[in-house]
């Protein structure tokens, strides 16, 4: 299997968060911190699809304006 193309990004992350992430890497759950971040981002994107976010907001609008409770 060919390796996916990658890029390098620079971002600010709370120290406590990176400490927790590093703990998982140190315990052997992830190969390295890059692997962990890719996995975390992939999972986030899977459950935060744009169409889903939009659908949820639209459901809220309908309930808010026209619900009966």
């Amino acid at each position: 299997m060919s390796k996916a193309q990658t890029t390098v990004i620079q971002t600010e992350i709370p120290i406590s968060l990176i400490a927790q992430a590093q703990k998982l890497v140190d315990a052997g759950w992830f190969r390295d911190i890059d692997d962990l971040f890719s996995d975390a981002l992939r999972r986030f994107l899977e459950s935060h699809r744009e169409d889903l976010l939009e659908e949820f907001i639209r459901q809220d609008v309908e309930w808010g304006l026209a619900g009966d409770d």
Binding site: F56, I57, Q59, D60, V61, W63, G64, L65, A66, G67
Partner: peptide
């Protein structure tokens, strides 16, 4: 049943 902040804000009108 699930709603969020936007639902609560708009419900406030109703």
């Amino acid at each position: 049943r699930v709603h969020g902040t936007i639902g609560i804000l708009l419900r406030a009108i109703r």
